[in-house]
Design a binder for these strands. Structure first.
Lengths: 243, 243
DNA sequence: TGGCTCACTTGACCCAGATCAATGCCACTG
DNA sequence: CAGTGGCATTGATCTGGGTCAAGTGAGCCA
């Protein structure tokens, strides 16, 4: 029993039914036609992983691409002595996987429970070269990731600890609840542990904790069970993040 | 009088003659065929700018794309209170310009004297949609820039001042002299002022200066006229950068 | 039910790098 | 050729965030 689709979803980002994933989603695959999707369906498989699963190492992403159906994936880099930096967070419906040869080593790891729809690399590579619109989407997503990475460089290089934490919370708030750009009483689960947040912000666990406490005591946010955050006034948080 | 091309240059990165620029260069335009290049030539123009020229603001890059023929361009972001961060450096023969709508504000400014070959935006946009190989190259370059940005995030978030400066010098050494990955007596002009280096590394001018002095006194580098750097043993520098 | 572990918080102290301030060193220019 | 202004270096001091260490609290398993 399908309801009539609203007119405003008839744009290029319109969700399509991915047979393989048995789920509607936007993202790169939205560029494929019905027959192409059908073709892809037979090769795709669905998978759910627990938090902390290496996605790059277990041949998941070296031989495959994947759509994130739900959850958060962290992209990390590590120095020889163990210092770690999270260089990106991927949310649904982002596309995971690096076309061409990468010039640097990055690991992908699930931060939360993650549901993936994975495709064999060869199939997608062929589709990319055959479907200009797919390549266009991929370029689009890559440019967005580049913008995000460069935006985050400002946070890493020039913001104080307080601003970093506020920026992080603002980032999560807007990504978990995309519609709430400047809403009141936004509420969400933090997809990252304090250690992950520290690795994302270039801080230590202790500093992250202290700054969260500060925000809590200043009534900018409230926290339950360490992970559930409520932001009464997102505008105010954004201001602290000095966006 | 053409000499027989060597076999090993017959790859996809083969330099092509860009009529417009009256210069051979690699890069994104290398994907274009002879007729396409000729077509582009009539629309392209060559330009040389002094250091410190805004390239995004003067309608250079909002209405155009450009190939960098020589020199270094810095991509910067600025916070409301004036704090600045350089989020990328572009060297010849990089392609300058952002397809689609950008999700964040970035400024492009020449760090050195820069020679550009600029194209009207509309012409390139059409060529991109008509020439899959061109779009492929663009995706390729964008992915490389993404890798670089993410690599630099580790430097910004997790390295010490000493490591940051060493990483910077290593980056410049390898980009100015691409062939010298691990050579001896590498020598080059720094394309950035101390202030720019500080903005790239998320440090202050003073800290950059002190770290350079330290490297000089440790005989890792030698400096003439503030800008000319010689690295007797690049391997040793790379080690200090803890690449 | 009691002891573990894991994630987080809090406190005390310290240091790398920021800040403030002075000086040096050209290259211009009037 | 003194005067000026843009860069860079160097020194003295301060402080934000790191380090080390202890404590809390919620599961979870035996």
């Amino acid at each position: 029993m399908m309801s009539e689709p609203r007119a405003d979803v008839h744009n290029s980002d319109m969700p399509v039914l991915c047979q393989a994933c048995e789920a509607r989603h936007r993202g790169v695959c939205g560029a494929l036609s019905g027959t192409e999707l059908l073709q892809l369906s037979s090769k795709a498989s669905r998978r759910e992983v627990v938090p902390g699963t290496e996605l790059a190492a277990d041949a998941e992403l070296t031989s495959s691409y994947a759509n994130i159906l739900s959850g958060v994936v962290k992209l990390t880099k590590i120095l020889a002595d163990g210092r770690q930096q999270i260089v990106g967070l991927q949310f649904a419906p982002d596309f995971l996987g690096r076309p061409f040869k990468a010039t640097s080593e990055t690991n992908a790891e699930s931060a939360t429970t993650v549901r993936l729809c994975t495709f064999p690399r060869a199939v997608i590579d062929r589709m990319i070269s055959e479907t200009p619109e797919l390549e266009r989407r991929l370029l689009q997503q890559t440019l967005n990731e580049l913008d995000e990475a460069r935006g985050w460089m400002v946070t890493l290089g020039r913001k104080t600890a307080a601003e970093k934490v506020a920026s992080f919370l603002y980032l999560i708030a807007t990504h978990i609840n995309p519609e709430s750009e400047s809403a009141t009483n936004v509420s969400f689960e933090l997809p990252l542990t304090r250690a992950d947040i520290a690795d994302f912000l270039g801080l230590t666990i202790e500093t992250v904790s202290r700054q969260m406490t500060k925000l809590r005591k200043a009534d900018v946010i409230s926290i339950e069970n360490n992970r559930h955050v409520t932001v009464p006034d997102l505008e105010r948080l954004a201001h602290r993040a000095s966006i």
